[in-house]
């Protein structure tokens, strides 16, 4: 459990010379039951880790796809406690795949910082991702996560100068989240120009910590390309777009995950 399982997942992928594949799905979207089935389907598809979203009313790092999904989940009554309980129920079913909770700061503060970290850890989450918490403001939460031995991921952006890349990388535990684009989450047809160089700049500061690339990734060939230079690939909006409105979201999520991983995995 915790940090160690995230390390093992990256090591496993590395040993197979492929990037770790990490889809994002908002808990409670489109409703609680369906979100559980989607996550179970992603596990069945063989993903390495899962980012589970904690919906927030004002997700300012997210584009329209994740905003809409968050809003639908909230309209269907999801709460922070509800999210935590969903992850617990997945662990109770025996799911071992590492899970990281991605949520904005305000619901976390309303729940109570230390309580939030403890509750996620107790429910079986292995790390936290907080998009509006810069490294400078992360001291308390970092300490709580360290105490519970779960990851607190930090971000880098294409706009980050070297000293900020170093700051993010040095504070990150679990992995460094490389935001691939200058922009919010959402489907892009092409990878950002210069992505490889930028990822190399991050790796130069990361001191061996895994680096995973997210934001805008939407195609199997993106996964293949990023796999050549990064340790992991994160896909959110493209998955939601493919599965959220499908007649059977779980099946659609399974098919989507398989298709995205296909170029970097031998058939199993």
């Amino acid at each position: 459990m915790g940090l160690k399982d995230i390390q093992i997942a990256f090591e496993q992928a590395r040993s197979e010379s492929r990037p770790a594949f990490m889809p994002y799905w908002p808990l409670g979207y489109p409703d609680q039951e369906t979100s559980l089935r989607v996550i179970e389907a992603l596990v069945a598809a063989g993903v390495d880790m899962i980012e589970v979203g904690v919906p927030f009313s004002d997700p300012l790092a997210d584009g329209p796809v994740i905003q809409r999904a968050s809003q639908i989940a909230l309209e269907h009554g999801i709460s922070v406690q509800g999210c935590i309980d969903l992850v617990r129920s997945l662990r109770d079913k025996g799911i071992k795949t590492p899970m990281l909770a991605m949520g904005y700061l305000n619901p976390l503060l309303a729940y109570g910082e230390e309580r939030y970290v403890s509750a996620w850890q107790a429910a079986g989450a292995d790390g936290l991702i907080i998009p509006d918490l810069p490294p400078e403001e992360s001291a308390d939460i970092r300490a709580y996560c360290a105490k519970k031995d779960i990851a607190l991921v930090q971000f880098t952006s294409p706009t980050s100068p070297a000293k900020r890349l170093a700051l993010g990388a040095s504070y990150a535990t679990g992995f460094v989240y490389v935001v691939s684009v200058t922009g919010v989450t959402g489907v892009r047809d092409n990878l950002a120009a210069g992505l490889r160089d930028y990822v190399e700049r991050v790796k130069a500061q990361a001191n061996g910590k895994p680096v995973a690339v997210g934001f805008g990734i939407s195609k199997p060939e993106h996964v293949r390309e990023i796999g050549q230079y990064a340790d992991g690939v994160i896909i959110g909006a493209a998955l939601i777009r493919a599965a959220g409105d499908a007649p059977d979201p779980a099946q659609a999520a399974y098919d989507f995950a398989r298709s995205m991983m296909a170029p970097v995995r031998s058939a199993t």
Partner: peptide, 20 residues
Amino acid sequence: QDGKFGIYGGRYVPETLMPA
């Protein structure tokens, strides 16, 4: 220097905006 008035204020934005 952190942009705080007491404990209020500060900078809580995605990393992309921090350099700006």
